[in-house]
């Protein structure tokens, strides 16, 4: 079992695996998005106290969940990178960060546009909102740290450390509404129970699934670019370019980068 896993820990073989998986995750994301939007925006009834402004929940909660969950996955890869010293780990952390940042930003943005009509304010400095803003800064900090280090392997190690230090923020976000007085309400969905009508809950869970599938698809696509970028000096990438038809066979000259019509040759 473990042999198979470590086989895919090599960037070269993970590149192929990721390429085969992407269409499935992308299709699942697209289908779930359509279904979730239909349930949430068309089928689901109006809320008894918030009216139709509550429909922001179908984006807000999935985005917040994925923003936090992606960070945990990043931290897992970061830890694996430190323990096993595999190249792929750092690449996965690098590939996940922008999408985690994106979803955290979406959670903050949609939260603002939900807070204004319901609470009466776009932003307040309560524990839930502040700790989520810190999560966004952690993502940005990770990307800035990477950008400031030229050697990718050193950037991997520094980034992994930053990621692991920041992971303490995740339970703070999650439990903030329980531990302290916040303007933000408590969780509607807890393990084993929910305080939402069934249709509303279904729509939200389907949208969360869509966001999850999207995150997997887009970060696999991104890690493929990162692998090619970081292994561009190795022979296997050269062979890959031929095998995937990005250049002609060896000896027939690869053509100038950016020139069109190479596939046709």
């Amino acid at each position: 079992m473990s042999i198979h896993w470590f086989k895919y820990a090599s960037p070269a073989s993970f590149y192929g695996l990721a390429g085969r998986l992407i269409p499935w995750f992308a299709a699942a994301a697209a289908l779930a998005t359509l279904a979730g939007l239909y349930i949430g925006l068309v089928l689901a009834p109006t809320d008894f106290q918030q009216g139709d402004s509550y429909r922001i929940i179908y984006i807000h909660v999935p985005a917040a969940w994925i923003g936090m969950f992606t960070y945990l996955v990043m931290a897992g890869w970061a830890a694996a990178g430190i323990v096993f010293n595999t190249r792929l780990s750092g690449m996965m952390v690098q590939a996940l960060a922008p999408t985690g940042a994106l979803f955290t930003f979406i959670a903050l943005w949609t939260g603002a546009f939900w807070g204004r009509p319901t609470w009466g304010a776009y932003w307040v400095w309560d524990a839930r909102l502040t700790s989520t803003l810190i999560l966004f800064f952690l993502y940005i900090g990770y990307m800035a740290l990477r950008a400031s280090i030229d050697d990718p392997r050193r950037a991997d190690r520094a980034g992994a450390l930053l990621t692991l230090v920041g992971v303490v923020n995740i339970p703070i976000i999650y439990f903030s509404v329980k531990w302290w007085n916040t303007l933000h309400q408590g969780a509607s969905v807890k393990p084993g129970s929910s305080s939402m009508a069934t249709v509303m809950l279904t729509g939200m869970l389907v949208m969360a699934f869509a966001a999850w599938m999207y995150t997997i698809a887009i970060s696999l696509a991104r890690v493929r670019s990162i692998i090619v970028e970081r292994e561009q000096h190795s022979a296997w990438v050269g062979e890959l370019l031929v095998a995937e038809g990005h250049v002609g066979a060896p000896g027939t000259s690869g053509g100038v980068p950016g020139s069109k019509g190479e596939k046709a040759r």
Binding site: D47, Q49, L183, Q185
Partner: peptide, 10 residues
């Protein structure tokens, strides 16, 4: 500011 609860229903 209004502070609403976490219940959602028609």
């Amino acid at each position: 500011l209004a502070r609403h609860d976490e219940n959602y229903m028609p």
